[in-house]
Design a protein around this nucleic acid. Structure first.
Length: 112
DNA sequence: ACTCTGACTATTT
DNA sequence: CAAATAGCCAGAG
């Protein structure tokens, strides 16, 4: 097992994202203590696909843009999933992103 | 052991 | 205000 700790944490947090909510890579990274490793969060999400059970579609960049939609295999699968959860997505961007934003550092207390 | 890359973010031009 | 650049960490070749 090595330190997949990082990935593991990311997976756990991502898994705890409530239905109809979205968060940003940076928010997760910050929650994990590695605020500057937002990219790593995305990398972890990449593994989350094969890992499964990870609602990566609820994780977008800090702008609410579906940056990782291309990694979802499909074209607009990510957008469709979000819309299916009641999140308005226009032009690959989450509308009222701030309103749907879910900050793990705040909602999940400060530790996992 | 070294280098490159990447689903980001903040800053500067 | 929009676009370009740099900084950043950690995994994979």
């Amino acid at each position: 097992m090595k330190d997949q700790n990082f990935f593991q944490k990311v997976y756990e947090v991502a898994r705890q994202i409530p239905y109809g909510r979205v968060t940003s890579y940076g928010a997760i990274a910050r929650y994990l203590g590695t605020a500057r490793s937002a990219r790593m969060v995305g990398w972890a999400m990449n593994g989350s696909i094969k890992n499964g059970d990870i609602p990566a579609h609820r994780v977008v960049n800090r702008n609410g843009l579906l940056s990782g939609k291309h990694h979802f295999g499909g074209t607009h699968l990510m957008q469709q999933l979000l819309e299916n959860e009641g999140i308005e997505v226009i032009d690959d961007q989450v509308v009222y992103f701030q309103k749907h934003f879910w900050d793990p550092s705040v909602e999940l207390d400060y530790y996992i």
